[in-house]
Design a protein around this nucleic acid. Structure first.
Lengths: 224, 224
DNA sequence: ATCGATTTGTAAAATTGTTGTAAACAAGTA
DNA sequence: TACTTGTTTACAACAATTTTACAAATCGAT
């Protein structure tokens, strides 16, 4: 299920969109202002963000900028009122993927959401492979010697994080923050437990890891 | 010095950018159309490429695509006129790292160039080397004649401290405070023990140290 | 009730600070 | 110079501590 974060100071609209998202099979998260929205974006790592352009305090433009500055690639759709002067170039510059002008129908918004999600997910039609393992990021499937391996959510997330940061020493804290987000605080030893399981599923010989290496006193390093 | 390749059919703009780059400490290379630009990109292997979106013949988009097809990871910044319809997603898809809308100030362009260079170079591994030893800071790996040397945490920390303070007499207290921190109070002789271990692992002849020199009555000095 | 995520217990492995001793050094003295 | 002496460093070995691997238990959410 995909999480959509809605950042809008208009409570009524927020709730309407939230409800719509829920009935359409998304998991909505709501924020009433830019600052908390930003926090939630970092904490929840949603699959898409809807952000109002005109908000008291931190505006939509600024939110976009900061999200991009935080190296989050989450697709962004900006909601703007009809009167708002909007520099489309500026919008794109700060990293928005699309924009919708209020007032809009839920049907239209939904279409835009689906379009952006489709576009951004098809961007990475890539399969990453190492030794006898293939990871299909778009299908969210892991194959070992062609066999479909069942991966749990945490395992898969951890795996993709390793894949995206190959050959780098990663501390447990870095891993926790990136894979689990800032809002949950599991034990650092939890990372160990999941690495063990990744090894058991993916290593040729789990006792002598070739890919998921431990960096003693630091954390782990993934070697493709 | 870093080379920046400018591909633009507007000769005046090309020269302006070239001049600006030169005064800012880059080595500019200029190309007037896509095809020669592509050739130069392959020949010069510049550190960054600025390419105009709209050019007669081979367009900027196509240049990006072909550069990526050639497995060059050179960062790309696309220059586009304000009227150009620009699909940002498409731009990213063909491998551009950023884009700047004309007309732009040299200051802005420079900022973008620096930002992209910073981003992409920090992704690349930082390596410090001396004699036959290479220290890869991002992988947290030490190579001797290409061989992977296993270093413990204390050894690695001490080594990087030496690397960061080359050719300086460092007292044991300075070393302890910097490497071990202020909270632990090991014996100053602990430093000696670890220096011995570094020598044994990294010196050509550990008995006659060439790099990790002792400064009698004071401490140690690292000579790259 | 089941599956997955997290925590916890524990054995094994790795690391680290300390210390004993030999060697090296610096300086003074004959 | 040669010898002496007190100090400093090199190195090996050891014991204490830290860290990791793994299994099993617990917790939580459908």
């Amino acid at each position: 299920m995909q999480t959509v974060l809605v950042i809008d100071d208009d409570a009524a609209l927020r709730d309407t969109i939230g409800l719509m998202l829920e009935t359409e099979g998304f998991r909505p998260a709501l924020a009433g202002d830019g600052r908390t929205g930003l926090k939630q974006a970092l904490a929840l790592k949603p699959d898409l963000i809807l952000v109002d352009l005109r908000m008291p305090g931190l505006g939509g433009m600024e939110v976009c900028k900061q999200i991009r500055a935080a190296e989050l690639k989450t697709p962004l759709i900006v909601l703007s009122a009809i009167g708002d002067e909007m520099d489309k170039v500026l919008l794109l510059e700060v990293g928005a993927d699309d924009y919708v002008v209020k007032p809009f129908g839920t049907r239209e918004l939904l279409a835009r959401i689906r379009a952006v999600l489709r576009r951004t997910s098809s961007e990475g039609t890539k399969v990453i492979a190492f030794s006898d393992v293939e990871v299909d990021l778009t299908r969210r499937v892991v194959l070992r010697k062609g066999e479909d391996l069942k991966m749990t959510r945490a395992e898969y997330n951890l795996l993709t994080y390793f894949l995206q940061n190959p050959d780098r020493a990663l501390t447990r804290d870095m891993i926790l923050n990136s894979v689990w987000g800032y809002e949950s605080f599991p034990n650092t030893r939890t990372v160990d437990a999941h690495v063990v399981r990744l090894r058991q599923k993916l290593e040729p010989d789990p006792v002598c890891p070739q890919h998921f290496l431990t960096v003693h006193g630091v954390g782990y390093r993934f070697l493709p």
